[in-house]
Structure formats: C-alpha cells, structure tokens
Simulated assay, not measured.
Amino acid sequence: MQTSSGSKLDFGRVALLLVLLGVGWYFWDSPAVWPLKLLVVMVHESGHALATLLAGGAVDRITLAANESGACLAHLPTGMMAQVAVYSAGYVGSALAGAFLLLATFRFRLRRLVLVAACLGLAVMGVLYAGDGFTLAFCMGTALVLGLAAKYLPDGGVDMLNLFLAAFTALYAAFELRSDLWNGATRSVSDASLLADLTPVPSWAWASLWSLVSLVLLGLFARWSLRAARPEGLGYSLTSGRR
C-alpha cells in the first residue's frame, strides 16, 4: 500500500497497531489496564495545565482518583478564547501525546528518548502539581516504570510499548466521546460541559468536535509514522517489493 507521497506503509506495524487497538478495546474494562487509563488521564490533565500556563494562568494542583477521574485546578487566564483553549487542551492533549509518540518512535527513531521524556515529565508534574499522595505516588511510580523500560527493554520491546501506549491513547479519545455523549453523570461534569457553559455550542458538539480532531490527528500521524523503513526495532516488515 502506498501513501500519497509514493512511500509504502509498513504492513507489519499497521497490523500490529490494529491488533493492539483490538486488545485494548477488548480489555478496556479489565483491571489489568487500570494503570494505563490513569496514565492517559494524567496526560489529559497535564494538557489542561500546560495550556493554562501558556495562556498566562496559574496551576494550583492536579489530582487523580482510583475511579479513573482527574482534575486540574487552576486560576484560568482572562478572555473567552484563552479559556476555550484551556478547556479544550485536555481532549487534544492526550491525542497529540500519542501522535508524537508514534512519530518520534517510528519516524525519527527516538524510541528510548520518548520514554525518558515521559518519565521526566511525569516526575516533574508530580512534584510540582500533585494535589494528594495518591497522585504523587502514581506519577513517581509510573515515571520509575517508564525509566526502567527505557533503560532495560530491547529496541523491539520499546517499540511495542510505545505503539501500545499510542493505541491506548486513541481508544481513550473514542471512549471519552462515548461517555460525554451517553453518560449523563459524566457529561454534566465533562470538559465539553464547561465549554458549553462558556459558549453557545452544546456539549455534545464540543465532545464530537474534539474527539474527531483527536482521532484525525492520530490517524494522520500514524500514517506518516508507519511508512515502511528499515525496521530496526520490531525486526520485521510485511511489505514486499524493491527498495
């Protein structure tokens, strides 16, 4: 299969991504993926925090809960557009994280640097903004796991881990849309609800818009990242033909 630029997609990686999406979807409600859900929630809340700081606001604290909820408490910047950007940053922040994870790992061969950056980012966010002991413990514990993975996993293992994290991020966007549209309790306290209070646009439209943008971003970055190249990490490619 060729992209519009004429390069071929690596069928091995594409197939593996689809398998990982299926695995994540099937085990979504399993306790085994609970830490991954909390990780993506932390990325979501970090998106709010970074947008707040960039827009001139101030972050008070970030909290995570065992029920997979999270909150970023901050002094918002003035101006409606700045606040829309802050409220929207959670939706697209996790998608951008997954997209850049794919790009850095498979296009630029920065597989270990990606995990090191995630390790340091979690540790910094935990130390600076964790609002309780559970959030701090999760950030520091997950940072340790990612740091050890970056140091000790073989290249193929790092590629697999990064690909799975990117796949899980895509699933998070899809399931967040489902919750915001159909779960009344979730919808009433969601970012989409906050955006609806701030603008004339209803919450379902905001949820649909940002989930669509998130999935499109992930799709575009995945298409760019999974072009065929000499696979140094996963060690195989199912593409054929002359190079």
Rank of each mutant, 00 (worst) to 15 (best):
L144G: 09
T199K: 12
G141A: 04
L181Q: 07
N162V: 03
N162F: 07
L194W: 14
S203C: 04
Y129G: 11
D132F: 00
G184K: 11
S179W: 09
L165D: 02
K151R: 15
L122A: 02
F164N: 15
A192C: 09
A137N: 14
L148E: 01
A174W: 15
A143D: 07
S190A: 14
L181W: 13
G121V: 02
T142V: 07
L128H: 10
L122T: 04
M160N: 09
R112A: 08
L115N: 03
T135W: 02
M125F: 14
S203H: 08
G157L: 03
C119M: 05
V201P: 10
A167T: 08
C139F: 04
A170G: 12
T199N: 12
P154L: 06
D155A: 15
V124F: 04
W204V: 10
R178P: 03
G131F: 10
F168I: 05
S203G: 06
V189P: 05
P200E: 02
A118H: 01
L161Q: 01
L144Q: 05
G147D: 02
A166M: 02
L122C: 04
L128V: 13
L177N: 05
L122W: 04
L146S: 01
L165P: 05
A117D: 04
L128E: 08
S188H: 03
A167L: 08
A166G: 06
V189W: 12
M160E: 12
L110R: 14
P200R: 09
L195V: 10
V158N: 12
A185H: 15
K151E: 13
A118K: 04
L163P: 11
M125V: 14
T169Y: 12
D155S: 12
L128W: 13
V158C: 11
A185L: 13
A117Q: 07
V116K: 00
T186M: 02
S188W: 00
L165C: 08
L165Q: 07
V201W: 08
L120C: 14
L177H: 08
F138I: 05
M160D: 09
T199R: 12
V201N: 11
S188N: 03
L122D: 01
G141Y: 00
L195C: 11
F175G: 06
G126Q: 03
L146V: 00
A166H: 06
D180A: 14
D132L: 00
L153T: 10
D155R: 13
M140P: 13
A149R: 06
M140G: 10
C139Q: 08
A192R: 09
G121D: 06
T169H: 15
S190I: 10
T169I: 14
L153W: 03
L181P: 11
A167H: 06
A130Q: 13
G147W: 07
F108I: 13
G147C: 07
N183F: 00
A170L: 10
D180N: 10
F108A: 08
A185P: 12
D180K: 12
L120A: 14
Y152M: 04
D191P: 11
A143S: 15
G126T: 01
A150Q: 00
R112F: 04
T186L: 02
F108L: 14
A167M: 08
A123R: 08
T135R: 06
L115E: 03
N162R: 10
W204T: 10
A143R: 14
A196I: 07
L163M: 13
P202Y: 05
V127S: 11
L171V: 01
S179H: 11
F134H: 00
S179R: 15
